[in-house]
């Protein structure tokens, strides 16, 4: 890109904050998080293949408080990217572009991600026997 020193669009500093801005950038951010998280899934599979000791090391990391924080973050990123991804697939068919429905579906993605994360972690923290 040419370095002209002129201000670049979009002029984020003068925009009023809108939920669509958040859902857009969050989709990319959570995508990056999930890409890194996929490496952890491969680690888990490799540990399971390597033997009981390596797998015990993996599960110890996963159930450590820090590991749990990472996993909660991963779950939230996953459900957000999933629900907003489905929203994008629907929009690819040409539906939902009117501003009110665009805003509504943005909020729906965010709320669905939070609700699904809470459900999964309620299941995990109550012992996984629900």
């Amino acid at each position: 890109m040419a370095q002209t020193g002129r201000p670049l669009s979009p002029h984020l500093q003068v925009y009023k904050w809108q939920v669509q801005m958040a859902t857009s950038i969050l989709h990319r951010a959570t995508g990056i998080i999930l890409a890194v998280g996929s490496l952890l899934i491969v680690w888990g599979l490799a540990a399971l293949a390597a033997g009981e000791e390596a797998y015990a090391c993996f599960t110890a990391c996963a159930s450590h408080p820090l590991g749990m924080i990472v996993l909660v973050g991963w779950t939230l990123a996953f459900f957000y990217h999933l629900s907003n991804g489905i929203r994008h697939l629907v929009q690819d068919t040409g539906k939902g572009y009117a501003i009110p429905s665009f805003v509504r579906s943005s909020w729906l993605s965010v709320i669905a991600a939070i609700v699904l994360t809470v459900i999964v972690w309620a299941f995990v923290l109550t012992g996984g026997h629900a």
Partner: peptide, 29 residues
């Protein structure tokens, strides 16, 4: 888009499988 559609199903299936293995020992997993 095609990989996204596949992943909608594959990731949910994967999550359900992992949740089912929460308290599983090594041999079960």
């Amino acid at each position: 888009r095609v990989t996204a559609i596949a992943l909608v199903f594959l990731t949910v299936w994967f999550l359900v499988m992992v949740l089912g293995l929460l308290h599983a020992d090594y041999a079960t997993a």
